[in-house]
Amino acid sequence: MTSHATISIEPAGIRWQAMLPVVAVVVVAGFGLLSSDYVVTVLGFAFIYTIFCTGLNFFMGYTGQASFGQSAFAAIGGYGSAILCADYGWEPLLALFATMALSGVAAVIVGFPTLRLRGHYLAMATFALGLIVYEVTIEWTGLTQGYMGYSGIPPLGIAGYELVTVKQQLVALVVLALFGVAVAARLRQSRFGRALASIAGSESAALALGVDIARYKLVAFVIAALYASAAGSLFAHFIGFISPEVFGVTMVVQSFAMLYLGGIGTMWGPTIGAIIVSVLPEALRGLKEMQDIGYTAILIFILIFAPRGLAGLSALFGRVRGRVKEAA
């Protein structure tokens, strides 16, 4: 990249560029709306995963930490929403926020001791957290109905109005995913976001500049947990059924495949990755059986040959990542 003296950033130009992925997402969704319900379901997954990965990107991309156990918070969101709505007749939206709050609190409690760890130990500790919640969803049958799973979860809706068709729900998911990406971008382009980036860059330099790294790591972890929890809740409402397998190790690997394929640490990387990884196995019919093998193969390939992902390859998105300044 040869970027000399590009001091005069034209806000209009940047904004136009920044809108491009939004347009792309809307086009993808529009294409889905014109297709079968099956395609809509696949795209719905993609946008739920967009939310999950955007959160993960906070902790791993922006802050440079690692969590191999974000599936735990998705499970809290999914099961929380399922139980509150199916058994207690809560409003889906209310349940979504309530479980997000619960996940946030859980993230603080768990993150406070765990995030002191580094490297392999952090990876293994977070991995264990995910596995613990997974085991609990299997074994605590009184709460989760174990392997049987939880069914009869109502679709998303507001104030008595339910989104009955999958296409309506897809629209809602697209809006929520874009909202999630926008929030992440806004947070990144701020003092807060810069502090996170400083931790990823060099912890000792961050400390020397007065960044309270323990606190910022924790906040990033909590934000990631909120996104994961929301994704879990949305999954429950979208499919109407959840089981422990949904929030297992596969979810972790799949989300990493998305994050690294799309481009970790970039604004649109999670979205790009989520859409491609969700749609690809559907496009390659007959590969169904081998889906997980496909994900892991993609992930390993990307990790070896293009660790910065697609967004990293593209100068266009690279600029968006670099310095979008709020023109307002």
Binding site: A66, V249, V252, Y295, I300
Partner: peptide, 10 residues
Amino acid sequence: ILATLAAQIM
């Protein structure tokens, strides 16, 4: 680490 985990699942 992630790659080894992916290898395990594969």
